[in-house]
Structure formats: C-alpha cells, structure tokens
C-alpha cells in the first residue's frame, strides 16, 4: 500500500468511527440539546473525514477541488443548522436536561 492509500483508509475509518459515535450519542443522550451536540459535531467531523478521503482518492483532479469546496460548505452549514434547531427549541421554552433531576428521567 502506498502512503496515500493508508491515509485514505485511516480517514475513512475515522469518518466511520465518528459517524457511529454520532449515532450512539443520538440514542443515548437524554434530551434535544445534548443530542444536538452529538449530531452536529461528531457528525461534522465524520463527514469531513469521509469527504477528505474522497478528495485524496481522486488525487488532484477537478473532483478533488469540488470535494474540498463541499467539505468547506459542510463545515460552515452544519453548525449553523444545529444552532438553528437548538435556538428554535429554546424559543419554544424547552427546558434543558440537567443532572439534578436524574430521578425523573428515563
């Protein structure tokens, strides 16, 4: 394997790992706010790593440039979307879950 292939492999595996973390977080975390953490961030990094692997795999063609642009836009829009969701929730008056009320929570 060339170093490039190793890099691609490592990035793909990293992407899969963080995507899995995002899903596990989505299921395990207690409320909307905490879930937004896992879906917005772990998910962003997972997608970034996967797209980075794609960019490397295409090796300097136009597709690489486009993939990098795609990556950049995900980097900007993903947190914005998470923020929009969380803010909407806050405006609806949804109370954030805290450790103090552990007893009531399933």
């Amino acid at each position: 394997m060339t170093p490039r292939e190793i890099a691609i492999l490592v990035m793909t595996l990293g992407g899969v790992f963080f995507a899995v973390v995002a899903v596990v977080g989505l299921i395990r975390l207690p409320d909307l706010y905490t879930r937004a953490h896992s879906t917005s961030k772990s998910e962003t990094l997972g997608a970034l790593l996967a797209l980075g692997a794609v960019a490397l795999a295409f090796d300097g063609t136009m597709t690489t440039v486009k993939t990098v642009l795609l990556l950049l836009f995900m980097f900007i829009t993903n947190p914005t979307a998470a923020h929009a969701i969380v803010r909407a929730a806050a405006e609806q008056g949804i109370e954030p879950w805290t450790t103090d009320e552990e007893g009531d929570e399933a």
Partner: peptide, 19 residues
C-alpha cells in the same frame, strides 16, 4: 458550535447563550 461540548443556543448582539 463546532467545538464539541458546546452549542450556541442564542446570540443577541454580543450576548451569547451557550449549551
């Protein structure tokens, strides 16, 4: 928002509400 562990909930001018 990108840095894990913190999500910006609301911003009013320079006042940040962060979860």
């Amino acid at each position: 928002t990108l840095t894990p562990g913190t999500v910006t909930v609301d911003v009013t001018r320079r006042h940040f509400t962060v979860h």
